[in-house]
Design a binder for these strands. Sequence first.
DNA 1: AATGAATGAGGGTTCATTCAT
DNA 2: GATGAATGAACCCTCATTCAT
Lengths: 208, 208, 208, 208
Amino acid sequence: MPSDLRQERDRTRSERRRIDVLDAAERVFVRQGFHRTLISDIATEAGVGQGTFYRHFPDKRAVFETIFDRLVDSLFAEFAGMSANLPSDAREYRDASVAALRRVAQAVERNGDLVRMILRETPTVDHSLEDKLASLHDGFMMLAKSFLDHAVNEGFARPCDTEIIAQAIVGMGTWTAHMWFSGRAPDVTLDHLIGEMVDFAFQGISAR
Amino acid sequence: MPSDLRQERDRTRSERRRIDVLDAAERVFVRQGFHRTLISDIATEAGVGQGTFYRHFPDKRAVFETIFDRLVDSLFAEFAGMSANLPSDAREYRDASVAALRRVAQAVERNGDLVRMILRETPTVDHSLEDKLASLHDGFMMLAKSFLDHAVNEGFARPCDTEIIAQAIVGMGTWTAHMWFSGRAPDVTLDHLIGEMVDFAFQGISAR
Amino acid sequence: MPSDLRQERDRTRSERRRIDVLDAAERVFVRQGFHRTLISDIATEAGVGQGTFYRHFPDKRAVFETIFDRLVDSLFAEFAGMSANLPSDAREYRDASVAALRRVAQAVERNGDLVRMILRETPTVDHSLEDKLASLHDGFMMLAKSFLDHAVNEGFARPCDTEIIAQAIVGMGTWTAHMWFSGRAPDVTLDHLIGEMVDFAFQGISAR
Amino acid sequence: MPSDLRQERDRTRSERRRIDVLDAAERVFVRQGFHRTLISDIATEAGVGQGTFYRHFPDKRAVFETIFDRLVDSLFAEFAGMSANLPSDAREYRDASVAALRRVAQAVERNGDLVRMILRETPTVDHSLEDKLASLHDGFMMLAKSFLDHAVNEGFARPCDTEIIAQAIVGMGTWTAHMWFSGRAPDVTLDHLIGEMVDFAFQGISAR
DNA sequence: AATGAATGAGGGTTCATTCAT
DNA sequence: GATGAATGAACCCTCATTCAT
């Protein structure tokens, strides 16, 4: 039945349009921020009429949320194959940390501006989006915490309030990423940066 | 000449009005964020007409910047008497850190919502305000760095890339403060939180 | 490609809308003057929303200038075929003057209110529009002067400061037109009026 | 009784204030035109508070009208002693015309900007002010007409539609004055200008 | 009487959203 | 389905006018 084929093709074309709009919105949000962006900016950037925007999204907030979700998914995909086997001594733990950070850094590097935009804009878009971002942070924190708990249990990390420390570590990382992608970080290689931060996390600043 | 007296009184009253408007704006910004706040919201909250708003500020952005500056000044005032004598051994250094963090925490505690609002909204208001906030962060980072450099020079902190570590520490602190004042931090006392963070910063997570 | 057709049709329709707004503005300006006219008055008169006004003109001043230019163009079009052959004796000169005035009068008659409005309002709209009107007057004056110079050179007008006299004649004409279209001129036929003015311009008031 | 004296002095002071405001308004109107002038501009220029403005005038229009009337009065005062004895031959008539124009020119010269402002702004302020200006023109026209009628009756002016000619002459004069005070008139002496215009009015342009 | 801070109605302008084509 | 002109609610800002001091 050819109409099936046609429906299929139409759906595909529509889906492509939707993604065009999404990509355009992302570029504009990155460039101008959420609040300075007009629907017409997005439509123009996407090369479509404003009406077409409304065929795919109910409003600006919805596109933003879709972009947010898309980013989160792509970051989580990056993590998928990662936490396979837990480290069994301090050395392995450290190596795993460095490897994980490198992987994240690479993942984020490809669209650092996007990440920065999301971190900057999300909390001012909406209360519910602010919460969503918070859960995301919580998710990372839980991940870090479970890593840490494991290490403590295995005896190659000292006992501590792992929730607080996990929180601190995530904060440290997020912040540093923010700086790095703003170009406001010290002018060093990414490997050096990661190395210093892991050393700090493992040994702190104290001599010995 | 009685008109001198009158001018004086008028100036005082006008100054009070200005502060009323400023305080009202602060409350509304905290409640609704910068972008959802209308001039009329501020005027209503202050219990004055819209025209009165414009008598004291040219626009919403200007009030925001004034609130920002006022906060920065009040935080700096808190720091004024602090960095008197530098610590001369590791223990003193740790104690000084705890004391400093307590002091900052207390200073911020009184208007945690304001701090959170400023941290959240500022980067989306304006490019120039975003920069202003960045310099502020830089300032804190430099402070932390000089502390750290001192400790390294004195030999009670291990040699490291103090700029990176200072950045990380400031990030960690800011982030944790953010969490704390959102009520999304673990449910512990402030002293415990500070203690854990300082321990982490000094010894890291490693056993021994 | 049907979109070409559509673009064409859209452009035509838009152009028509623009002219609707322009015509409406003209009517309102004539009725209320520039300063008493609100954008909403124009939109209402045109039967469109306020937003539509702004789709076609940036502000009230711009519509005014467009109306001004449109009038000037239409008046100049009237003059186009006129100054073909210069008169070669006093009688021809007088006949040519009468003919020219009749022609102008007819051209202006069709929209006397508009002309009056433009003469009245333009100098208060804007400095640049005031200047534009002044150049227009200058243009007319130069035209009159060249006519006069020719007559003097040919010997059927007495030697005189032709610039001053040209200025005076234009003033006389403009003024009389103003009066005529306000309904404040003496109650005579246009031909009589023109005849008297031309006689005056040729012979002055003196007996003989 | 000293309170009489005091009342008297107060009245005088109030009257002086009123005139200060009036003078200030005049300067501002000349500088900015009626519509661009704010009450606060006038008050500032007068060096008084805005409240004081309202003590003396109900609104901007009223000050304008007062300035208008004041100008008219001062011009009429200038004419008071003028039309004493009517001329009895053509030569005298011409001399009288030149003398009259010189006198008017001098009167106007002292405040040419004011006259220009009044001529420019009045018709756009108000319908009733427009009418008032029209009556003024009518007054001048009637004056000119009666002069002209006399001359015709005495036989040293040719018979003509004196109303039309009077209108034309007034228009010519007003227009030329306008040009002159805008600095857009030919660069000649006032006497030359007047001479040319009177010659034109008496003999027209025709040779012989 | 003089002041000028306070007011808020009024008018300009923007822009999300609709809808005829 | 796509378009973009049209719309008008919503918001910013001005400024004539009032009135407490």
